[in-house]
Design a protein around this nucleic acid. Sequence first.
DNA 1: GTGCTATTCAATCGTTATGTTGAATAACAA
DNA 2: TTGTTATTCAACATAACGATTGAATAGCAC
Lengths: 226, 226
Amino acid sequence: MLNNKVTPRAFKDAAYAAFAQVTKAMGSPRRLELLDLLVQGPRTVEQLALGTAQPVPSASQHLQVLRRARLVQTQRRGTHVVYRLAPEVGPVFVALRRLAQARSPELQAARGDFFGPEGPLEVIHAEELRSLLAEGRVALLDVRPADEFEHAHIAGARSIPFEELPERLNELPRDQLVVATCRGPYCALAIQAVRLVRASGRSAVRYEEGVAEWQLDGGQLASSAG
Amino acid sequence: MLNNKVTPRAFKDAAYAAFAQVTKAMGSPRRLELLDLLVQGPRTVEQLALGTAQPVPSASQHLQVLRRARLVQTQRRGTHVVYRLAPEVGPVFVALRRLAQARSPELQAARGDFFGPEGPLEVIHAEELRSLLAEGRVALLDVRPADEFEHAHIAGARSIPFEELPERLNELPRDQLVVATCRGPYCALAIQAVRLVRASGRSAVRYEEGVAEWQLDGGQLASSAG
DNA sequence: GTGCTATTCAATCGTTATGTTGAATAACAA
DNA sequence: TTGTTATTCAACATAACGATTGAATAGCAC
């Protein structure tokens, strides 16, 4: 028999309260932004505060909400506390973002205002990119900072951080399509990279998602020792 | 060039605010419970209020939050307003619940208190169930109400609503394992069904997840006209 | 130990969410 | 039209959240 001491109602209340602790933790723009940064790799509180343009104490408090919801984990390194995403959080976060983006006209409008009206010719999608990569017919260029590339990148990508791109354009092939990728849909680096690469006479398009989306879609990741 | 009228910061603020509208809508136990009911099929406001043990105006307000976040859609049917899950929401909701459950000791403890300390012998997981179903070596019994079964059920399942189970036990085979399934991990019907079936001399185990989890794990669903 | 830095804790205040109640609206039936 | 039902709106009190400060703690260098 079921344990009579716990009524179904009491159990449901407890269950949904526990569930809501996780969804509540994700219910703040600041915290979503923090999670988005953490998808790229572990960060200290200070780095996270800088990256999200908020005071350190605010970032710390938001991070503790995320930690209580067990969405992130901490580790002390000397005087720094390093936060990282908890296991399995990345794909769920990305799936949520995709859902939000798919059914939010406001978000699509905001992207249009910021990125400009890019035609579909500018971007390549996961499926096509995957087959081109498998055939070795494309050069995949990851323009994120080196440490983010080291933490995780699309298998087969090469790293040229955006700041170094102008002087390292000659490393890119002239006879292949160049695909630029950065942090994900809210990151403008890949767009600028595509412009630079095109200006050098090469053909280039953008993969507008990031490592977590790639993984969610069944793609392989790689990481360097670091 | 990027549109200079929109700074990166302003764009990010807008983007994460839009994203947070969705996660905020999910950040309430009441609304999670409403979503959980809606995963089983469309419902009127009154049914949803009853099913979540809250006054109708409260349910209506929560549903409107969900609608503004575009997680549910409405449709008038005479004097009733029928709410249903928006497309693609089910799998993401389930993935979130799974994440919450996997990393919430409180939730696991609450489940243990309510369901009792069931051994792993009591349950069967998706992978094994799928192969047994493919080989026709199992009778899958869905004990949810008929309308939920009609809306969506695991392909190959047969419907015997829990209230009718005692007088319809003879419809179940004696030479096959019976697997009972209901709404999902917070639903106690399947446990009680397993007990009934076992008491009739048949062997039975429980599939402790529901249709949305089955779909998320790549399983086929079916639905009757209705 | 002392000084320094990174992070967290604590207290405040303004804002936002929640649940409750009662009234208003929309569709249907007579 | 009038009455009836289902749903939504409006207004209030209570509670939770969020950003901002300043103080406290933990580790490191000397």
